[in-house]
Amino acid sequence: METSKEIFLKGYRDGIPIGAGYFAVAFSLGIAAREYGFNAFQGFLASILTYASAGQYMGFALYATNTALIELIILTFIINARYILMGFALNQRMPEGTPLRTRVLVGSCITDEIFGITIARPGVPTPFYTFGALFAAVPLWALGTALGISMGIILPARVVSALSVALFGMFLAVIIPPARKDKAVGIAVFVSFACSLAAVKLPVISGLSQGNRTILLTVLLSALFAVLFPRTADGEKIEKGGARDAD
């Protein structure tokens, strides 16, 4: 049995590469934030409190156009709607009787990447793990934003270009190993790639923001695979007769 401290440290270690990726992406976010009128301290504050990439980028842009707060709230809800789904997926893994405090603490740590590594861990999600990851990753996210604002022009474009794929590399590290183990996940990943490409090219749907395309495709495709290849929350196959076999 691992102690809470060991789990926290495990989360912290797993959070470091995420933080490295965040740092790079935050740098480019910072460059944009500066254009939108944020100084380094304000960018740092926004990043350490919000830690949401696409949502923050949008928020900064909305501030620059002096959009009403109510619009900011609605658009933030829409662009971050995938966090609700991720919250459901994490809570689905927690047994009945889990205190609300625990559920809220785990939920508060949701980012695309921290969710990814948390759901990839077997067993019940714990706030010790998610906070470990959060403590490693989010300060780097905030630092990257502040540095992007204060010295964004200095870093060579090629370095920014290289660092910008770090996050995607992490996504691949989360989805590819299960895709190798479980054929249904493999098909889901491949079809998601294909549909995502199509969504960028096709009329109407390509006009949606990236966040909205993501949520639309997530709902449609997850529903499709739920019908084609039913699974329990832990990934056990559900046989036609109702019997389950742990694959």
Binding site: G116, F168, A188, L197, T218, F225
Partner: peptide, 21 residues
């Protein structure tokens, strides 16, 4: 069963869609 299965696929689909293209 449907909701369970749906939530099982959510992370993979979301992260795949965000990665490519």
């Amino acid at each position: 069963m449907f909701i369970q299965s749906f939530l099982y696929y959510v992370p993979y689909v979301t992260l795949a869609v965000m990665t490519f293209p």
